[in-house]
Structures are given as C-alpha cells and as structure tokens.
Nucleic acid binder design. Sequence first.
DNA 1: GTTGAAACTGACCATATGGTCGGGTAGTAT
DNA 2: ATACTACCCGACCATATGGTCAGTTTCAAC
Lengths: 211, 211
Amino acid sequence: MKNAVTARQKDLLAAIYEHIVNTGYPPTFEEMREALNVSSNQSILDLLEKLQRRGLIKKESGSRTLAILHLGYQVLGRPALAPILGTTTAGLPAESIEITGEWHPISSDVSRLKEEMFMLKISGDSMINAGINDGDAVLVQTMKEFVSGDIVFAEIGDEGTVKRFMSDDKPPYVYLKPENPNYKNILFTDDVRLKGKVISVLKSEHWQSVK
Amino acid sequence: MKNAVTARQKDLLAAIYEHIVNTGYPPTFEEMREALNVSSNQSILDLLEKLQRRGLIKKESGSRTLAILHLGYQVLGRPALAPILGTTTAGLPAESIEITGEWHPISSDVSRLKEEMFMLKISGDSMINAGINDGDAVLVQTMKEFVSGDIVFAEIGDEGTVKRFMSDDKPPYVYLKPENPNYKNILFTDDVRLKGKVISVLKSEHWQSVK
DNA sequence: GTTGAAACTGACCATATGGTCGGGTAGTAT
DNA sequence: ATACTACCCGACCATATGGTCAGTTTCAAC
C-alpha cells in the first residue's frame, strides 16, 4: 500500500462525513454506493478497509457501525458532551456550582476528555476584557499546574469563579485578577483552590442557539 | 402526554448518548434493551416515540437511524467541521489566508452553520490579553454588523488578522485594537474589511491534540 | 371504580443490510 | 511478462435489526 490517500478514498470519506453531518448517523453500504456511483458492495468494502488501515475511520461489524476518526489531512471528531455543572460567576464570587442538568456539546477526541473537563456558564462581567461575557460558556480542563496569565476556574470557599491567575515576583505575588477594572484582585488564602484552566470560550449568542 | 420527561425516558436518552459518545454511532434496539434492562422492543419503541414527540431525538426508518437533537434540559449537538482556512496573525498583519486543507471539529446545529463559519489558527501575540495566544484556533462567524468590543476577523488588504473592534464617539472613532500593549491600534482605511466575529476560542493545547 | 397514560411482555415477521464469492480492468513498477 | 495495487462488477447469502400484534401491570387522576 502506498502512503497516499487516493482520490477515491477521499471521495468516500467525504461522502461518509457528509452523511453524518446531514443525518447524525453513518451511511449504509447502499447509500455509500450511490454517493460514489458504484454498483458493488465490494468497491465500498475495499475502500473502507484502506481507510481503516490508515486509521482514518473505524469500522465494526454491524449496520452503520462506521465512525470517522481523522479525515486524512482533515480532522474529524465525534461529539461529546461537557456537562454544564452550573453557573459560575465572573463577577463577585456569588453562588457556587449547582447542578443544573444542562449539557453542552463539544467535539474532540472524546475518550481522553470525558472526566477531565466540564463546562460552566458565566454570569457577571468581571472578565469582559478577556472576551468572556455574561452568559458565555467556558470549557474548563481540570489541571494542577498553572502559569501566570492563565484564565482559571477557582473555588473560593464553596463558591466558584473564573479569573485570570497571576503570579508575580513582587507583591501581591500570587492573586486572581478580574479582567474588568471595576473589580478588585483576589488575594490567595487557604480558601482558594484552583480547579482548572479555561481552554475554550463559547460566546452565548452561539451556544444558546443550539440549546 | 404530560410535559415532564419521565425518569425512564431520561434513562434511554442517557443510554443513547453514552453509546454515541463511546462508539460514534447510535445503538440498536437490542443494545438499548440491554441498557434499560427490558426484554421487549415495544418498550424501547414507546419511549423513543415519546422522546421524539418532545423533539429530543429524531428517528427515521432503518437501522441505527437515531440522532439526538436535544437532551431535554440537556443539550446535544452533532459534530461538524469548520475548515481551517489558514493561519491568520494576531501580531502584525502578515500573511493572509492560505488554504491549508486542515479541518477542525466543532459541534452545533450544523445545517445553519456550514457556510457561515470558519476556523483560523492564530499566530502572534497581539491578542494575548483577550485570551488568544499564538497557536490557538478561533471560530469565526461571518457577519456584517459589529458592536464595539467585538473580537473580529478583518482583512487588511490581502492579509487577515484578528483584533478587537472599537467604535467610539471621540477620536480615533473607529479602529481595531490589539489586546497587547506592545502593539498599536489599526485605523480604518478603505483597505480594512470586517469579515466576521470570533465566537469561540480553542486553546492550542486542546485542539492540537485532536489533530 | 373507571379512565388513561406510561411502561412493559413475548412471540413473531419482513427485509434492510453487511458480508462473501469469484471474478474483471487499468495502471505502474520491476 | 510478471506482479502488485487500486478499483470495480453482479449475483448471492445469512441474519441482524426494525417493526408489529395482542395483550398485562402499575399508578395517578377524577
């Protein structure tokens, strides 16, 4: 097998992708045959096998058991959900996380992420200069090490908040900085625990439309 | 039909969701029966019908033709791709968009978005104070109207750049503002065209891992 | 105590669907 | 010339899979 993905293989990949996007589930052999304008299952089978050998798709036994892994030089993810655990505040740390039961879609290499991320809805305006506004959602990756400048999710007492983590070589050394001049820095106490880092911000006008 | 989603319906919804996340495609009736610990297809059929009536799922005729639309008070999206058209710069406007052929996964109500969004990889550090760093990816929604403070993608000549759009009632009135004190504002000329608004930022450590 | 919705049972059917078999053709490299 | 790969054909098979039918049970509302 050569190392190039042939045009025909790309055709099939594109057809599968299109189908998934349009319907939400993978195509059948018949649908793939139609898309590629071939008459035999074997043609599809051949192509599928090659795509699978390259790790671009995965195929199990059974109907519509296709999943796209990588689109060659293109990338595809499967959908995942980050639970919206609650509403955190970008203003004064107010109420902590409450389970609201909402979910928000994310896309990615799912397996790795499931446990380590969660999504929060932001209320308040203390991070507007960092592009995080009231109503936006942030995706937080839990981690233990942070560098100065990271936007982090922290628990203060039993309340959650999103702020910029700052560490400096002069006072106040380590603190949480709201990105809004109307708010004051939050100094570290025993009560402050950094939980994770904001790795994605979804503007409310976008993600609310898919609710 | 009452208006509450019953516990059993939630169970099924959760099972379907779990299956999709784990495998990439919807479950069969048998798999759903196992998940709910029931022995009859009819049980599943009943539940599916109710879920569909509520618009939480859509079901067509055929095997595994399930798709989750909304998870009730939970939300689910299908995967979509935003083409990574090229690398824009968050520093000095350098090279414009070049088609790289890379794709990046997004999740959402796909149909509406396909044409109107694209994703860009950021190079440079001119937007670090807005949480956009070198190597991050931004999702841009094309639009025509902007409000002051929006982070926008603009073409200047034949070069693309991401900046904060500012409109003021005093000079310089309308300009593009880098979120880094080391860079100067960019005044509007005939050459500046606003193309869209940044609606999502994906930190590089996240999205590169799924490439 | 009647009604109705939600959930479930167990047996059964039709066929959509993945998969196989035994080939063929065109192109390219050796 | 031979060999190999990519791609394809057309007929066929086995069964996984969605769907139906005629019921039962539970529970809350009225």
